[in-house]
């Protein structure tokens, strides 16, 4: 290698390693909330925030493999367990926002679905795979074993997209998903779900970001996205 090339490569790698911003990773159902938190926190705290949206478990696997994610907001407590086992969680996890399960139907509810029982006769029903958080919550519902989905979706948002584009007629995801165009959400009683925050590093700027998430602005971002705030 010529000296010039070596210098160029060195600059390239140095560029990759320089990581001043905070990376928040979140579950697919948090996409709207995290987008407003990103811009809000940057304005209020003057820190650089990057967001990374994927299935919670995908983030966990990436973090264990060394991905530079500072804060993970997972759609359930179980998701964070492998990180805790690996000793990567610096602050005791706690809930930061809440949601609720809901039957998702096409806008206007053309099939007149009203309850979990009425899903038994829906031919084109989709449920979330029990491997992902929304699917874990769904699998604990009473009478779920009587439902026969035609597809097991790998995230809440993918499930909702199936119904929005007409491929499926009904499914179970979150109340907050009712904000997606083309679908309505029918809340299921007594099915509260919680988002847990896992902090994977001990830094002062992370503390102020966590403070922001629990303060008025952060909590408003969650409620505007259809979630319930931790304060209420």
């Amino acid at each position: 290698m010529r000296p010039g090339t070596v210098v160029m490569l060195a600059i390239l790698f140095a560029g990759c390693a320089g990581n001043e911003s905070i990376v928040i990773a979140g579950a697919s159902s948090l996409v709207g909330a995290l987008e407003s938190i990103e811009s809000g926190a940057e304005q209020t705290l003057g820190i650089e925030v990057e967001i990374d949206i994927a299935g919670s478990q995908t983030h966990v696997a990436a973090m264990i493999a060394g991905a530079p994610i500072d804060v993970l907001i997972a759609a359930d407590r179980t998701t964070l367990a492998p990180l805790e086992t690996a000793g990567m969680i610096e602050i005791e996890p706690r809930p930061v926002a809440f949601n609720q399960l809901a039957i998702i139907v096409q806008t206007g509810n053309p099939l007149g679905i009203a309850s979990l029982e009425s899903l038994e006769s829906v031919e084109r029903l989709v449920l979330a795979a029990p491997e992902v958080p929304v699917g874990r919550y769904t699998s604990r519902l009473d009478g779920i074993e009587r439902l026969h989905p035609i597809s097991w979706e790998t995230s809440a948002r993918q499930l909702v997209a199936r119904i929005a584009n007409g491929e499926a007629d009904a499914g179970i995801a979150y109340v907050s998903d009712g904000t997606v165009a083309g679908v309505d959400a029918i809340p299921l009683a007594n099915t509260e779900t919680s988002y847990w925050i896992g902090v994977a590093a001990e830094r002062s700027d992370l503390r102020s970001l966590i403070g922001y998430l629990y303060a008025e602005d952060g909590q408003r971002a969650f409620s505007e996205a259809g979630l319930k705030s931790a304060a209420s």
Partner: peptide
């Protein structure tokens, strides 16, 4: 095709 064990998985 979705994710359906035995059918599309």
């Amino acid at each position: 095709a979705g994710n359906r064990p035995g059918v599309t998985q």
